[in-house]
Structures are given as C-alpha cells and as structure tokens.
Amino acid sequence: MSGKSAQDKRKAAKRAADMTILPAGDESKWQPPPPEVRNESFVSTFDAPGCRDGKNRIKVRIVSHTETGALIEFNIVHQTFHRGKWRDVASADSCHDDEVHVHRYARSSDARVGNPETLVPVRKLADIQTGYDVAYDTVVDKWVENRGRWDHG
C-alpha cells in the first residue's frame, strides 16, 4: 500500500505532467540567427499567375544567412490594385519566429481580419524553408479565392 488517496495520485500526476511540458517547450523554441548574419532583404514582384490585367501582384521579401545562404525570414503578400492604390489581400510570413502563418485583410477597412492561420510551426531553421514552400500554395495558388474573400470582407 502506498498510503496515497486517489485524489493525491491525480494531483501528483498533474504536477508531474506540468513539469515535463514546460521545459520541453522552452528547449524546442527556435532561436533565429543573430542580426550580423542576416543578408539585406531581397524584394521581388510578379503578376499573380493567370492575372492578365496587371491588377493582382505578388510581392516576396527574403532574408537569408550571409554564410550558408539558408532562408532566415520571408514575407509574401498578394496585393490588388483597387481605387488607385495597391491593397493587401493576404500575406504569409515567418516574422514572428515561432511559426509561419497567413494573415487576411478586409476590403472595407484594409485591416487584418480573423486570427492568423498557422501554416508551419517553426522549431528549426529548415522549417522556414518548408513554410516558404507552403506559403505559395496559400497565397499564390489561391489568389483568386483570396481576392473573392477580400471583396466580401
């Protein structure tokens, strides 16, 4: 006999679980490379595929590692030309270090709407590259769908 009640056992299990989760979370948090190894931002622009009137474009911003060339940070934005200016429709970025996610914008206010949609959790440098590839599917491949959603936002 251990001498512990069922309630004591549940409390002990809960405490044990807490102690294993927190340190694991801290250890898995990815630390981005320091500023001195960040290349200057590279920015590129192209028409959204299939857009023939030049009124939907994709802007890509990339920062890579000065020594290894690995992707450190990126931002990809779908913009539409509406009433004389370029306005954000959807964007994906890795700028918050712990995940690559998508933001969506409203036509009525130009503000972000809803919570960001997580595409890829970032726990290591290679996850940035994975997120970059996945971001294409969401921002570029679905630009028509995103534009339609923006119209009603």
Binding site: F46, P49, V60, I62, L71, Q129, D133, Y136, D141
Partner: peptide, 13 residues
Amino acid sequence: RTTLCRFVYRRLA
C-alpha cells in the same frame, strides 16, 4: 505559366 511561376518562386530562396 503556373508551373513556371512556382519553378522560379522556389529558386528565389
């Protein structure tokens, strides 16, 4: 064109 766009996008990295 869509495949070409993706081809270049991936190499931008």
